[in-house]
Amino acid sequence: MLPFGFLIGGLQERRHLNSLTQREAELAAIQVCNLKNVPHPETVTDAGMVMGHVVIASDYYKSFATSLRNLFGGQMKSAESLMTRARRESLVRLKQNAQRAGAAEVWNLRFAFSNISQMRGRTGNMQVELLAYGTAIRRG
């Protein structure tokens, strides 16, 4: 199980990261920020909520590495990369939705997190949902 998780999981993670980098570059024109007040509101023609979310699970090797790290303490790199991937993916999906709606700016961005793993505890089993939401605006 361990080498299987390490190999397949690692391969999948690299593929996901490559795809994220590529899609992030494609969507670079879409500005995202967490500010509430939109400047020049008189030029805004349309506004609406956009969301992007993803549920992501860790592979067996990562789960093992995390539970081991829990014994000794310190920084959990394996869990960190999982969360970073989830957050980037949800943000990319949010930007895609904004682009589909014809918006170039997203304001007041928020993230919501939920842990949906069935076996919670020291097993290190991680299934997390990341939701990114904000207000997309179109300017005339």
Binding site: C33, N34, F72, G73, G74, Q75, A79, M83, R87
Partner: peptide
Amino acid sequence: LVQGNTIRAKHV
């Protein structure tokens, strides 16, 4: 947007 994250644990 700028962001930073970390996950940390204490020993058992």
